[in-house]
Amino acid sequence: MANFLFYAFALFTLATAAGVVASKNAVNAAMCLLLSLVGVAGLFVALNAYLLAFLLLLVYAGAIVALFLFIVMLLDMKETESRGFGKLSLAAIILAAGLLVTGLSTFATRGRLPVGDPALTPALGPDIKLYAYQLFTTYLLPVQVMGFLLLIAMLGVIVLSKRWEGSDDVK
C-alpha cells in the first residue's frame, strides 16, 4: 500500500511539474505548481515528515502560490509568448540536456547511496519536540539570522513597491 502511494504521488508530482513547464497560460502554470506541491507533500508523508508536509502546504500552497496567482492577475499580461531561440541559448539548452541525461543515467545505473540499515534506522516520526530541540539548540543562530532575513525582505519589498517622487513610471 505504501509503495503504491509512493508511485502514485511520484507520478502525480512529476506530471503536474511538467504541466508547469508546458502550460501556456500563467494561471494554469500556477495551478499545476499547486498540485505538484500537494504531490510533494504526499511524498513527505510517505517519508514520515508529517510536520514538514503540513508546513509545505501551508507556506507554499497557502502563501506562495496565492501570491503568484495574485501577481499574475494583477499584471494581466498578453498571452503571446514568443517562440524560437538564439543560437547561443539553443547550444546551452542542448549542452544542459546532455549533461542532465548523463548525470541521471549514471545515477540510475551505478548510484549506491550510503544508507543505514533500514531495520535499525528508526522512523523519527512526527515528534515536534525533535524539531524544537534542534531549532533551539544546534540551530539557534540560524533561526535568528532567518528572523533578520525576513525583516530585511519585508523592508526591501516595501522599498521596491513604493512609488518614489519624481520616478518616471509609465502610467
Partner: peptide, 28 residues
Amino acid sequence: RFNGTMDGNVFVFFILTVAAAEVAVGLA
C-alpha cells in the same frame, strides 16, 4: 529519513523560510 538524523528535516525549515522571502522580494 533513511539515515535516521534530524538535520535534513531542520534544514528544510530554513529552505522554506528563504523561499518565502525570495518569492516576496522577487515578485515585488
